[in-house]
Lab assay of single mutants.
Amino acid sequence: TEYKLVVVGAGGVGKSALTIQLIQNHFVDEYDPTIEDSYRKQVVIDGETCLLDILDTAGQEEYSAMRDQYMRTGEGFLCVFAINNTKSFEDIHQYREQIKRVKDSDDVPMVLVGNKCDLAARTVESRQAQDLARSYGIPYIETSAKTRQGVEDAFYTLVREIRQH
């Protein structure tokens, strides 16, 4: 089974770092803004072998026109913010609204991801993020692309959301 996953969120929150940590098991430290990259990885989730087709997208506003296209083809979405960047957390709402509009559905598989949880300088409390996820009816997972904490959990949870859909 193949799953088309799309990673969305503001610029600099760590979308590529999360994806590369999942696929290649290493942490990319330097920031190089993405336009669009796709990665494929075969994994076993709950005993089922599946192929993850992951689209890593641009957070930069100037590429926002490309969003409709990949939102149409994606089956599930990782909505990523950084726990030390309140603005990126506030941006999640717009991504969710755009996904709902493009998919013409209120019920699209999504996982809210709070990345950079290895950093002490948190400005978005776990509780705020949990409340937001609960209001959307989606899971919330904290990750660190640096330490790998929660990385597999985030992507695998999204696959489970798609399966249950």
Rank of each mutant, 00 (worst) to 15 (best):
S105A: 03
S88I: 02
I83H: 09
N25P: 14
S105I: 08
T123N: 09
F81A: 06
S126P: 11
Y39I: 00
M71I: 09
V113I: 07
K15V: 00
L158P: 09
N84Y: 09
D46Q: 02
A17Q: 12
N25Y: 06
R96W: 11
V102D: 03
S64K: 10
G11R: 15
Q149H: 10
I20R: 02
I92A: 10
E75F: 11
P33G: 06
R148K: 10
S105Q: 00
R40F: 00
G137L: 11
Y95M: 09
L119I: 13
L52C: 05
D53W: 07
V80M: 09
Y156E: 15
L22G: 15
Q98M: 12
N84E: 14
A154S: 06
A129S: 10
L5N: 00
E161A: 13
V8I: 07
L52M: 02
A129R: 09
L55D: 15
E90N: 07
D106R: 06
S126Y: 10
E61I: 14
C79W: 03
E90G: 05
M71F: 01
Q128I: 13
M71N: 05
G14V: 00
Q69A: 07
V13L: 13
T147M: 09
S105G: 02
L22H: 14
L5C: 11
N84V: 06
M110G: 00
R101I: 05
F81Q: 00
A82T: 06
E152S: 10
D106P: 07
I54F: 12
I20D: 02
G59P: 14
V111E: 04
S105T: 09
A154C: 13
R40P: 01
G9S: 01
Y136D: 08
G137A: 10
T147E: 15
D46F: 09
E2L: 04
G114L: 12
C79E: 00
R148G: 07
D29Q: 01
Q164L: 06
H93A: 10
Q164C: 11
M110H: 00
E125V: 13
T34C: 02
C117E: 10
K15D: 00
V6C: 10
R122S: 13
G14M: 00
S88D: 07
T19D: 03
H26S: 03
Q24P: 01
R160S: 12
R148L: 15
Y70I: 14
I54S: 05
E142Y: 05
E75G: 02
N84L: 05
K87H: 02
T19M: 10
G12R: 14
Y136M: 06
L119W: 14
C117W: 09
R96D: 00
G76Y: 10
E61K: 13
D68S: 09
E2P: 02
T57V: 11
